[in-house]
Amino acid sequence: MAQNDSILKINNLSVAYGHVQALNDISLDVKRGEIVVLVGANGAGKTSIMETVLGANVPVSGDIEFKGMHIGGVPVDKNVRNGMFLVPEGRGVFSSMTVMDNLLLGAHHNLKNSTEKLELVFESFPVLGERRTQVAGTLSGGERQMLAIARALMSSPEMIMVDEPSIGLAPIIVNDIFEILVNLNKEGYSILLSEQNVYKALKIAHRGYVLETGKITKSGTAEELLNDEAVREAYLGA
């Protein structure tokens, strides 16, 4: 895979909610085939970046390019159609709806081939297949996270944004989820990940950005960030 071909490119992006400036002059990129991690404390702006890329927020200024197209102000449904999907913070699965319905919502914009896609998903996540008629509210936290990831796959994305998948999960389940992400990446999906579980995230990522109160303060390869004094001190407790 051509490593210098960006699937996502953000230039000087600023986002505000009313008077709250959430993102300040952010620039970053995700290359095809990469896992890029956004690292930052609560309120740093990780979710804001992802939701703005997705089209759920309108930027104040700056430019977002996805697959070479300018997508600032493009609504979510168009962006999903174009090949991106968000696995939201807290999973965002619909508890009152069945596993099957949740999966089909991922393919809402294009139900063609959804039967084949479901088969593939059930092959990768047998537990979801077993529970397809169960409502999502009865799933465990780890299963819900799997469902949220599987729902993203149903949309046939090229880039998946995964917002703090490890939140509220036992360490062993976090490992499973990260392994799933690594495998998806190997299959060719580009991944933008946000995490507070910095060590594990950097272990699976190619590159990372450190975010502090809406600004990028550091960036580099995962290796570089893992060995960075300041990063180690602030996020790795070393």
């Binding site: 939701e51 997705l54 759920a56 979510v76 449904d77 962006n79 999903v80 159609r81 999907f85 968000l86 939201p88 965002g92 699965v93 619909f94 508890s95 009152s96 709806m97 319905d101 919502l105 991922g106 809402h108 914009h109 729902r151 949309s155």
Partner: peptide, 14 residues
């Protein structure tokens, strides 16, 4: 039904 349960979540799935 998705909107009925969670409008914001529905928006995020497109």
């Amino acid at each position: 039904r998705a909107i009925a349960e969670d409008p914001n979540g529905a928006k995020l799935v497109g």
